[in-house]
Design a protein around this nucleic acid. Structure first.
Length: 430
RNA sequence: GGAGAGGUGGCCGAGCGGCCGAAGGCGGUGGCUUGCUAAGCCACUGAGGGGAGGUAAUCCCCUCCGAGGGUUCGAAUCCCUCCCUCUCCGCCA
């Protein structure tokens, strides 16, 4: 949610923002109309309430002196019907206005390239050498099959499609990635959080996932709870309704959670392998910052995510999303895409966004300046990283002709092996 | 799941039908005192919204005491529903 001042005083900025994002502008006229009607009714109702309050005050005075107040009571009752009707209209306009306003996306930052879709995205930098293979690199699902580290049959039988069972060194690799990501970020000053994975609707409203993305999430009707689609949700709710002293900012958090997505509307896309799953693991970075620091912190967050891929030796590129490709809440987003030679394409492993005060307004998170004034904080989120895409990149980039996979150096302490070979066996157990 | 207690401002904590947006304390800000520090003294210090005024200083009004309804001329205070926290019991990883 953005500041209404954009509608009232900076209409040109707002129009420009919607145009850049490819949103229709007609919503603004409706909003302005609703806003002025709403204000009209509020003013009228407030005046009436003031009158009633005044009468009540006088009744109180008379009663205290033991005098008769019946003529005032009669007068007060005269206002009741009028006030009741005004209240209704006030509520109605208010509801309509905020409902519409909640559909207005964030204002893109001036550094964001303008364009209709991903074709206008800009590759900011590329890191690492894309390896030349003397043989045809296999896609990860073939490698996983050869190594026996992913079990599709058991998963589909117990849970359906887009679920997988990691086995042996596959399970170990997954856990190694999670631990390595967490340990690295904690070392960079992020505080580890392990939050609830089921959350109430309010939490999703605050993060901006509701009402728009209900269909994308798993919902438990009996308890009115949702499975989180990303740890961004609980992390954005960590300080809901709070006022944070300026000197405590910035706050850095990192959380590992499983993430659950229904992937409605993506039937038939990425059906092979673990590119797109209903359940996957992700280590999420999150920051609360002062408004003046958020863009610098944004850059640092991207670097924090990149550092992991550098340490793993996975080639990647950083893409600055265009106005047409950015998410609803974001003011600026970088995607980090890893190279998957078996698939022959780049895969998004991370998305790092500065949402400025967009979520802070919804979640009502403010900071207190040294002079006592309060202001909304800025919030940033980014994957650091999503494991499946990194899992894929490791298998496909470090595969050998026989299908075995060399484990990146930094993961070896977590893995206990240098190479994943068939039969995949955990050296410490069966 | 059963029984009880409670949710008040940045925090703690009074108030239980009428100038209560809310005593008191802590914290914060400004000032005074002080050789410095510590202490002390004084003042200020919640949020959201609407309006007037130069999109200023400032002023007026409305709303908010977990959320939503209700009773009443009037509710933080009474009633109902929901949410949350705590204590005890039961159950359980």
């Amino acid at each position: 949610m953005i500041d209404i001042a954009y509608l009232r005083k900076k209409r040109d900025v707002l129009e420009d923002a919607l145009r850049k994002r490819g949103y229709p502008l007609d919503i603004l006229d409706a909003l302005t109309e609703l806003d002025s009607k709403r204000r009209e009714v509020i003013t009228e109702a407030n005046a009436l309430r003031a009158k009633k309050n005044e009468i009540s005050r006088r009744v109180g005075e008379l009663r205290r002196r033991g005098e008769d107040a019946s003529h005032l009571l009669e007068e007060a009752r005269k206002y009741d019907r009028l006030l009741a009707e005004l209240k209704e209209r006030e509520k109605e306009y208010d509801r309509k206005f905020w409902e519409l306003w909640a559909h207005v996306p964030n204002i893109p930052h001036e550094s964001v390239p303008v364009g209709p879709d991903e074709s206008a995205n800009v590759v900011v930098r590329e890191w690492g050498e894309r390896r030349e293979f003397p043989f045809k690199p296999k896609p990860h699902w073939e490698l996983a099959e050869l190594l026996g580290i992913l079990d599709w049959k058991s998963a589909s039988e117990m849970a359906g499609s887009r679920f997988v069972t990691y086995k042996g060194l596959g399970a170990r690799l997954e856990r190694a990635l999670i631990n390595y990501f967490l340990d690295t970020h904690i070392g960079n000053g992020y505080t580890e959080v392990f939050p609830p994975i089921l959350v109430k609707p309010e939490a999703l409203y605050a993060s901006g996932h509701l009402p728009k993305f209900h269909e994308e999430m798993y919902y438990i009707h009996e308890d009115d709870l949702y499975l989180i689609p990303t740890a961004e949700v609980p992390l954005a709710n960590l300080h809901r309704g709070q006022v944070i002293p300026e000197e405590k900012l910035p706050l850095y958090y990192v959380a590992y959670t499983p993430c659950f997505r229904r992937e409605a509307g993506s039937h038939g896309r990425d059906v092979r392998g673990i590119i797109r799953m209903h359940q996957f693991n992700k280590v999420e970075l999150f920051k609360y910052t002062r408004p003046e620091d958020s863009y610098e912190e944004h850059e640092r967050m991207v670097r924090d995510a990149e550092r992991i891929l550098q340490a793993l030796g996975i080639p990647y590129r950083v893409v600055l999303l265009s106005t047409g490709d950015m998410g609803f809440a974001a003011a600026k987003t970088y995607d980090i895409e890893v190279w998957a030679p078996g698939l022959g394409r780049w895969l998004e492993a991370s998305s790092v966004s500065n949402v400025e005060d967009f979520q802070a307004r919804r979640a009502n998170v403010k900071m207190r300046r040294k002079d006592g004034k309060t202001e909304y904080v800025h919030m940033l989120n980014g994957s650091g990283l999503a494991t499946p895409r990194v899992f894929i990149a490791i298998l496909e980039n470090f595969q050998r002709e026989d299908g075995s996979v060399v484990v990146p150096e930094v993961l070896r302490p977590y893995m206990g092996v240098d190479v994943i070979t068939y039969p995949s066996r955990d050296p410490r157990g069966a």
